[in-house]
Amino acid sequence: MILLDGKSLAQEMQESIATEVQQLSTHGIIPSLAVILVGNDPASQTYVNMKARACKQVGITSILHEMPKNITQQDLITMIENLNQNDKLDGILVQLPLPKHIDTYEILESVCPQKDVDGFHTQNSGKLFSGVKGFVPATPLGIMTLLKHYNIELQGKNVCIIGASNIVGKPLGALMLNKNATISICHIHTQNIQFYTKNADIICVAVGKPNLITKDMVKEGAIIIDIGITRLESGKIVGDVDFAHVAPICSYITPVPGGVGPMTIVSLLRNTLESTKNRLNR
């Protein structure tokens, strides 16, 4: 069994990104990212802080816009439209989830596709499903980068993805389909998930339910990508896979933490840098 070490790969990528950012800065060009945080959800604040810290480490300017929980949808859209018009701003990220009174789809659609470094705008998701270059959501992009780094071939493989969100499951499925894998996407209404997992060469799980994937659901030699993350009452952070019992029968598996999480952050940095390069070429 080999651990897919996202932490060390992300560190290597951060160093490479930092070098590119430094080269751009010698020409007076500083990549910049605007992060919008609505309300005071503790988990969202933690994620925003992690992104800001990572930006600082590579020299990307990160600007946090903290909005009250009761902001109106129109006021939020107006603010995003103003950011869209800022020629020196390369990326706009709206931290999810948003308060229930706000239509998340409308907010994400108001972000300029050229600055949509989260890859959530339908223009970018449409490009992804069509196999055309565009911004790809950070978590699926990070997973694909990790698999490529370990020379894991996707062509002809049976892949089971558990979790059908627009943020992870669906775009990850599209990326793997574009690499000629055969995809099954399971969700809350799927009957007998074990049928799909037992036949899978690669299992990707993004649910947020500890020990959802157990040893009896996995075939010998399978590759496990554990995307879920849960903090137990004890303070321990775990994924969706019963790691202690599943890992010994796998060929590769991501640890939690230290697997997909760091790759998500560095992929956001990479998207922001790509947006800067696109700006210079427009």
Rank of each mutant, 00 (worst) to 15 (best):
I225R: 00
F135E: 02
H187R: 07
N180V: 00
M67F: 08
I265V: 14
N178L: 03
A18E: 14
L4T: 09
E12G: 12
P257R: 14
K69I: 09
I265M: 12
M176V: 01
S125D: 02
D116S: 06
C250A: 10
L128R: 13
N84L: 03
N84W: 02
P140I: 05
Y105H: 09
T264H: 03
C250Y: 04
D118V: 15
L268V: 14
C55F: 09
P140A: 10
V136S: 07
D5F: 11
I249H: 07
A52E: 07
M1P: 04
G169Q: 07
N49H: 05
R279I: 13
V168T: 09
I185F: 12
V205Q: 09
A164S: 06
G173I: 11
N278P: 01
N199Q: 10
I30F: 03
N192G: 05
G163L: 01
M13I: 05
E274F: 12
L273V: 03
L280Q: 00
I227K: 01
V260N: 01
G6F: 06
E106F: 01
F135V: 02
N40R: 13
T72F: 15
N82V: 02
L154Y: 03
I237V: 14
V117L: 04
D41I: 14
E12I: 08
N281C: 06
C160E: 04
T230N: 11
I249D: 11
V136R: 05
G261K: 06
N166C: 00
S62E: 15
H187K: 09
D87W: 11
E106I: 00
E81V: 04
V238E: 05
D242E: 15
E109D: 05
I223M: 05
T230R: 12
A10I: 04
K7F: 00
S251V: 10
G131M: 10
V111F: 01
K198T: 12
C204A: 15
M1N: 12
E66N: 15
M144S: 08
N180T: 03
L273R: 01
V117F: 04
G59L: 11
S165M: 08
H65V: 15
E12L: 10
K56Q: 08
M1R: 04
H149K: 10
T230K: 14
Y47S: 05
Q95R: 06
G39L: 15
T190L: 13
E66D: 14
F120G: 07
K198A: 09
S16H: 08
G119T: 03
K51W: 07
S8Q: 06
S8I: 00
L96K: 09
M144N: 08
S25F: 00
D90E: 08
Y47N: 02
I29H: 11
T26A: 01
I92H: 03
A174H: 03
P99R: 07
I202P: 09
Q23M: 10
G261M: 07
K100H: 02
H245G: 11
V111C: 07
S8F: 01
N281R: 09
I167W: 02
L3T: 14
Y150Q: 13
P257K: 14
N180S: 10
K209V: 02
L76E: 15
N166Q: 09
D41P: 02
L141C: 13
L268T: 15
I36C: 13
L212W: 03
